[in-house]
């Protein structure tokens, strides 16, 4: 029997994996975007679970807003990455080190 706790643990694990993905990843900026999407999806899972178990529709409305904003966010992120690639011909994270004090 799958209970609400199982679902909550699942979405918390998804969130942890995506945070780890952002901090461990040293290779490519595009992987950062994927981790960010995963992060927002784990939040969505949480909202859907709570909404389902409490018979309240507003949580699912919130999910639609998060999905729309996540799409806008990745569009802007890709645009920034394109302009960064034009300037330095590489997407490696190790090379993003021009700003230092």
């Amino acid at each position: 029997m799958i209970t609400m706790t199982h679902y909550l643990v699942f979405s918390a694990l998804l969130f942890c994996i995506s945070v780890a993905g952002i901090f461990i990843n040293r290779k490519n900026i595009l992987l950062l975007l994927m981790s960010i999407e995963l992060m927002l999806l784990s939040v969505n899972t949480n909202f859907i679970i709570f909404s389902h178990y409490s018979n309240d529709i507003t949580g699912q409305v919130f999910v639609f807003f998060i999905l729309a904003v996540a799409a806008a966010e990745s569009a802007i992120g890709l645009a920034i990455i394109v302009s960064l690639f034009r300037a330095r011909n590489s997407l490696e994270i190790n090379l993003i080190n021009k700003l230092k004090g």
Binding site: F15, V19, I22, I29, L32, I36, M39, L40, S42, V43, N46, F47, I49, F50, S51, S54, T58, G59, F62, I66, E73, I76, G77, I80, I81, S83, L84, A87, R88, I96, K98, L99
Partner: peptide, 30 residues
């Protein structure tokens, strides 16, 4: 050169902040 770099840094960390806030929101809603 430095503007793009500042933008990508602000982008990533600001989204992490938004996602943490949202994760908190989801539990509060629950």
């Amino acid at each position: 050169l430095i503007s793009g770099e500042a933008a990508i840094k602000y982008f990533v960390l600001s989204i992490i902040a938004s996602a943490l806030i949202l994760f908190g929101f989801s539990y509060l809603y629950g």
